[in-house]
Every structure is written in structure tokens, then in C-alpha cells.
């Protein structure tokens, strides 16, 4: 074990056979007062993130700000070049030929917005992250195939090694595993 690693229990993870069971467990754990709950599924299931209260992330705001900055930057780059820095009369059109600026403005909006989406998503998720305790559980690899996992972390105030295990077993999982840090 390398010295920088935290030790001890990370949390309990339950493996489910289908998304309905997972959804029920996710809703149940929220209702039972658990807050540090995470779900892992082979494909996105919108209802699960709703059940876990993950809906409002800051990402849309980051993307919106990125988009606005991209639009302003794109437009005023062209405005500055065509009106201030190097004015040219092109076919008698006004120097601020805003119609011709639309494509570049649009592309800059999309470019900066999508870059903010990718980078913002990575930042908010704490990525890149080469190590995650859940990978210590061998069966967790099935999360990218055909199994659904729900994890309740030890740091959750409502966590209790035995009580939480019993609670998760109540949802009829394939198994409940203890995950070490």
C-alpha cells in the first residue's frame, strides 16, 4: 500500500440486476436520510439522477457564460478589425457589416460554449482522477456492462456499517460489498 492513501472503509456498494431496482433503492436511500449516495449504470438513466437530487449542477451556468463570452469575443474581434484597426470599404457596405459577422460570431459562441462544457464538466467532476476506491471491488467493472450499482459512502452522517448493509439488502440486490479506500 502506498503511503499517501487513505485507509479504512470507503462505503457500501450494492449491485442490482435492473434499473428499476436501482431506482427504488436510490429513492429509498434519499427518503431514509442518506445524502452521500451515488449510482453507477451502464447507460444514463435520467430518473436516477433526479432521485439522487443531482439535477442542479453549475455546469449550465458555466456553459452559458462561455457562450456569451464567445459571442462577444467573436463579434468584437471582427468589429475591431473591420471598423477600428483596418477599415476597408467592401462593395459599399457599412464598415460594421454585422450581417457578415454572424457566422463567425455563431461559431465562436459554439466553440467557447462547448469548450466550457467539456472543461467545466471535468472540473466539477474532479477529473482526471486516476484512482477511485470503487475500483477495488472487482465486480464494479460490471457497471459498464449490465449491472447497476448504488454506493452509500461512509462519510454520510446516516451511515452505519451494519444498519446500512441491512437497509441496502432490503432492496433485494445481487450483493452488498464493503469497499476499502
Amino acid at each position: 500500500m502506498d503511503p499517501g492513501r487513505r485507509v479504512g472503509l470507503y462505503g457500501l456498494v450494492a449491485e442490482f440486476d435492473n434499473s428499476d431496482q436501482l431506482l427504488r433503492a436510490a429513492k429509498g436511500s434519499r427518503a431514509d436520510g442518506y445524502r452521500l449516495v451515488d449510482a453507477f449504470t451502464p447507460y444514463p438513466i435520467e430518473e436516477v439522477s433526479e432521485a439522487l437530487g443531482h439535477h442542479h449542477s453549475k455546469l449550465p451556468l458555466i456553459v452559458l457564460i462561455g457562450g456569451i463570452l464567445g459571442a462577444l469575443g467573436g463579434f468584437f474581434l471582427q468589429y475591431w478589425v473591420s471598423v477600428i484597426e483596418y477599415p476597408l470599404n467592401i462593395g459599399g457596405r457599412p464598415l460594421n457589416s454585422w450581417v457578415s459577422f454572424i457566422p463567425v460570431t455563431f461559431e465562436c459562441t459554439v466553440l467557447v460554449a462547448s469548450l466550457s462544457a467539456v472543461l467545466g464538466m471535468l472540473a466539477l467532476n474532479g477529473l482526471p482522477r486516476p484512482y477511485h476506491p470503487l475500483f477495488n471491488e472487482e465486480r464494479f467493472a460490471l457497471a459498464s456492462r449490465d449491472r447497476y450499482f448504488l454506493c452509500i459512502k461512509k462519510l454520510d452522517p446516516a451511515f452505519d456499517r451494519e444498519g446500512t448493509r441491512k437497509f441496502l439488502e432490503g432492496f433485494d440486490p445481487i450483493g452488498v460489498y464493503e469497499v476499502e479506500n
Partner: peptide, 12 residues
């Protein structure tokens, strides 16, 4: 709408 305006604006 913008495409039509842009094309006609550019052609003038």
C-alpha cells in the same frame, strides 16, 4: 432567416 439575409447581403 439569417442564411437568406447573409447570402443576399453578401451578393448585394
Amino acid at each position: 432567416a439569417v442564411s437568406q439575409l447573409l447570402i443576399i447581403w453578401s451578393g448585394n
